[in-house]
Design a protein around this nucleic acid. Structure first.
Lengths: 346, 346
DNA sequence: CTGAAAGCGCTTACAG
DNA sequence: CTGAAAGCGCTTACAG
């Protein structure tokens, strides 16, 4: 089996021609005799020659790529972000490496250190908890980096984030406008958070926005903020605190799920109590990720501006690569309300 | 703004030392005086110097990468496959490019041609319809390629596929064992298929497996095969043909959805007729993708062996890169039954 | 039509 | 501790 990969030189020697001729023949240049081209091609294929993309890239100087570090969660909102980043990069002729955090032991830091030998020019870290570690690792190997993240409190990277507080406020205002007063909020148990939810900043922000809206409307319903650590566990059947609430005879007018993926267990819990959505209870979410489309009924939610987020991250990175010094701050993008059946008036 | 990126030579000139010294200093080698190291680093950062990953990769010869072409659909089963491929590649020290088809105009062919300048050694095409075009493009630039796909009839690439027929047969057998006789099959309208479902081979195969099981059990229920072209449209509210069937007073014992993502509209349709799952009707799917976890109730389904598929694709590709000639054939991997609430006996 | 040479940006023996 | 040189695998003016 191919001891060392055949190179241009091997082909040239074997074919009895010069390096340049081989290169030309293989690239289908017109200025090579048909005969020579044929012979070179034959030898090349006999030797199993494959051009080195690395050498080509260096020589032509036309190649550039960015690295995207994606979280380990099997599914989620990072996917449309990745796609948006790929589009934005693609338009600029930039390629994208994808590095799931879990594929390298030692976590994001060793992953990044491993990037020293990779022809990449920058890093987009999606939802990686420890920004400080990322920053340190990237500085060590001299790679610019931006984050797309809304769970980290302490910023060490330029960070692209959806405006969670304003978005949540807008959603609760929307529910209030529709006549709902007793609005429950599900999913605020920061203490029990699974790792993949990081420091949970977005949870605090969304809850804060929710409370702002209630307060502005003169509504008090702190008793309806349900802490639930199960958030994020795709497999969860129901939401125990909501189950308890309903069992105690309290039925809210509406339920605001801190994230779309909380809606399925919420809906199951409601169904178990014979409540139907939206007739008996309105339900809303946040993110507009796939979960919002798969539930029955489909979910009214605040949509994260995935395209803009991916695009902005790529832009920032390109500027950093061009030599600009990016300030460590949050770049906040607005969420938009998407209305679906789950809050429809009956 | 950084006219041309600074190179090692620039730093060396500016710092008044040799190339080698700069390289050593920047890489933190111990055999450079602290003073020199400091000065070099200062100059480097003043110049905004960033090492060229490409040059490094070429020089060290340690870098290798594969390209994964992913379909344009926003969500779906390709995601766990990508992740599995990344893991398998990662373990072998191979990096992964991800190229969403849609990011390049001209489709997969021009995408692949563009890979000539990219330091990649092979291509994994996930769910790309036209294998012949892929093959031609890859041959042109001398890149080995394998496919992960179960919708294409005419093979031109080594292809990794789940065993759709056996899997579907197993599912229907399972439903029969549970006492169901009138089993509907939803989603077989090949004519109306959206592009993203390619030639729909898997639909035929799954239907065939379903029929085999029925036949073996002596059950006739061709009237319950519901053609529905809406398959794949995430937004679909309900399934009209099922709606018609139920409206006509026919209630099947069980419904086998050709793919998990058909289940949400099926469940909505059932709910609209006041039927509950699994009490009145059992529902099952195929794929075990995210949709299976988000429905209420969660879905019994045949799980595609995502990990094995990703791993096998990477293996095959590595063998091709090593010079082996891969036969153009289907590598079929078994699906496994995953039981959840949607088929539970009440 | 063809070849020898320079060079893409690095790293690493090899000599000081 | 430091530098000049070779070389990673290609492509492309530059001369024949």
């Amino acid at each position: 089996m191919a001891a060392a990969r055949a190179t241009l030189a091997d082909v040239a020697r074997e074919a009895g021609v010069g390096l340049a001729t081989v290169s030309r023949a293989l690239n289908g240049r017109p200025d090579v005799s048909a005969e020579t081209t044929a012979r070179v091609r034959e030898v090349a294929s006999a030797l199993g020659y494959r051009p080195s993309g690395t050498a080509r890239a260096l020589r032509r100087g036309s190649f550039s790529a960015l690295s995207v570090i994606v979280p380990d969660s099997d599914w989620g909102w990072w996917e449309p972000v990745l796609r948006a980043a790929a589009s934005a990069a693609g338009e600029a002729g930039i390629h994208l490496f994808v590095h799931p955090v879990g594929t390298v032991e030692g976590g994001p830091e060793s992953l990044i250190e491993g990037l020293a030998d990779v022809p990449t020019e920058g890093v987009i870290a999606i939802s990686v908890p420890d920004q400080q570690a990322i920053r340190a690792a990237c500085d060590r190997i001299g790679l610019p980096v931006v984050a797309i993240d809304d769970s980290t409190h302490s910023l060490h990277l330029p960070t692209v984030t959806v405006d969670n507080r304003a978005g949540a406020r807008a959603m609760t205002e929307h529910l209030i406008e529709r006549g709902h007063r007793r609005i429950a909020f599900v999913g605020a148990a920061l203490e029990e958070l699974s790792d993949s939810w990081g420091e949970g900043l977005f949870i605090e922000e969304r809850l804060a926005g929710h409370r702002e809206a209630l307060e502005a409307a003169g509504i008090r319903s702190d008793d309806l903020v349900l802490a639930w650590g199960g958030v994020g566990s795709e497999g969860a059947e129901i939401v125990p605190p909501l189950d308890d609430l309903l069992a105690a005879g309290t039925v809210p007018d509406a339920i605001f799920c801190v994230a779309d993926l909380v809606a399925p267990p919420v809906l199951r819990t409601l169904a178990a109590h014979g409540l139907s959505v939206p007739a008996d209870v309105a339900v809303a979410g946040f993110d507009d990720e796939r979960a919002a489309l798969l539930t029955s009924p489909q979910l009214t939610t605040m949509r994260q501006p995935y395209d803009d987020m991916g695009r902005l991250a790529v832009d920032l990175l390109r500027r950093a690569i061009a030599g600009e010094d990016l300030p460590v701050r949050r770049h906040t993008l607005p969420a938009t309300l998407v209305e679906r059946k789950s809050t429809e008036r009956s």
